[in-house]
Computed example of a mutant assay.
Amino acid sequence: MDKQNSRNSGRKIGSRNKLSTKAKENLLELFEDDIKQLHKSINYVSPDERFVRLKPIIKLLCTGNDEVSNNTRNLIYESLKVEFTKTKFYLNQLPSDKRASELRQYMTYLNKEQIENIFGTIRR
């Protein structure tokens, strides 16, 4: 394969990945009811683990800017809104040697405004 052809193969820069969009639509359709019930599921997790378990969910809330991502984000946020207001409590349940590293991992997913909104209650 010459260099000329390898540069022009695949999706054009800036074009949508239709497969990913369709996959996200299908996943949302399959798990929409489960997402709406996240607040019930998280009750089975101990308070010291909730902060850690919410971390991948935070990443989902911060990715994608298409309609499916926005709908998913809204469903997750609405289901877990109460949990996000308890982040200070959950952070304080973690062993003190793990708090800084767990909090740092959250920060990698969030922009300044999101950090202020979610962790605003941590101020003393």
Rank of each mutant, 00 (worst) to 15 (best):
F51Q: 03
E113C: 00
S96E: 09
N26P: 00
S101C: 04
K81R: 12
R50G: 05
I13R: 07
E32M: 04
I35D: 02
L103W: 10
F89P: 06
K55E: 13
A23Q: 04
K81C: 10
M107S: 15
K3P: 01
I58G: 05
G120T: 02
S46R: 11
A23I: 02
Y109F: 15
C62L: 09
K24T: 02
L75H: 06
R124K: 13
I35Y: 08
F119A: 02
L103H: 09
D48S: 14
V68D: 09
N117P: 09
G120F: 02
A23L: 04
E116K: 03
N70M: 15
D33G: 05
K86C: 05
L110N: 11
D34M: 09
D33K: 13
L80Y: 13
K81Y: 11
I122K: 01
S15G: 00
I42F: 15
T63W: 08
K88G: 12
V82P: 02
K112C: 04
R50P: 07
N8A: 08
Y90N: 06
E102V: 05
N92L: 12
P56G: 10
M1E: 06
Y106N: 10
R50E: 07
N71H: 08
E78Q: 10
Y44L: 14
R11M: 06
K55F: 06
S41Q: 15
N17Q: 01
Q4N: 14
Y106I: 08
N5D: 12
I42E: 11
P95L: 01
E116F: 02
K59P: 05
R16Y: 01
N65S: 14
R7Y: 05
K3C: 07
Y44M: 12
D2K: 11
G64R: 02
I122T: 04
S79I: 08
N65G: 15
E25Q: 15
G64P: 01
G10N: 00
T108S: 15
H39D: 15
T21R: 03
E78H: 07
R7W: 04
K81W: 04
P56K: 08
S20V: 01
V82T: 05
K112D: 11
K40W: 11
N70P: 03
L103C: 05
K12F: 13
V68G: 10
S6H: 01
E29M: 00
Y77K: 06
L60G: 15
N17D: 11
K59D: 12
E25K: 15
L75V: 00
K88H: 11
L30W: 02
N65R: 13
Y44D: 15
E102K: 08
G120L: 04
R99P: 08
Y106V: 07
A23V: 02
I13N: 02
Q114N: 14
N111I: 02
F89Q: 14
F119I: 01
K3Y: 13
I58L: 12
L103V: 03
F31M: 00
L91K: 05
K22F: 05
L30D: 05
R7A: 07
I13K: 09
Q105M: 11
L28F: 12
N26C: 05
L110Y: 13
N8E: 09
Q37G: 10
G64I: 03
R7K: 11
N5S: 09
N65W: 08
S79L: 09
S20L: 07
E25L: 11
P56N: 10
I57Q: 12
